[in-house]
Amino acid sequence: MVEVRSPLRERITPGQFGAPGDAGVVLGNRTLAGLWQIAGWSDFDEAADPVLQALGLTALGSYRQAQQAAGVRAWRTAPDRMLFETPQDLTPFNSAALAVLDLGHARTCITLSGPIARDVLAQVIAVDTAPDVLKPGMFLQTGLHSVAVLVHCTGPDAFEILVPVTWAESVWDILFENALPYGIAVREAA
């Protein structure tokens, strides 16, 4: 069995860093259960239907709100493209009308939470992260330190950031640097 190693293995040292006292920010690296992208053409709505059914979802969803079902999380990233976090192998759905791509090895998930998490995020992405704008369950795709990322709000003070593995260390470093003045707690991978 091939052991999947995190691209952040040289960055994750559990402990407290930066300003003393209660950590304003908790940083971590969650192992993804599997990440799949499906993309299609003008008939994407029909072509994607079998995949949705297999995952227990009923619709493609909006460009703002993530979907959650048993064992699966879904993001509609473009009119003819969807992203799923699921352990299910979606390769059999590959067809002339639907391109299925395994991104499990290509993205890593940085978790960012704590009372100052929103402010730190606001320092590195040029979109509004205010609590009444970026609410739990919502997501957005944007540039963070010139890297294309997907930011998913998982709770009032919690976010997950899907980052291309090539740039994972660079994104981790910029978050870390910006969070130091508030105190950082680094947790082991969940």
Partner: peptide, 9 residues
């Protein structure tokens, strides 16, 4: 324009 760091449309 290409929305390279967003939806890539």
């Amino acid at each position: 324009w290409h929305h390279a760091q967003g939806c890539r449309q």
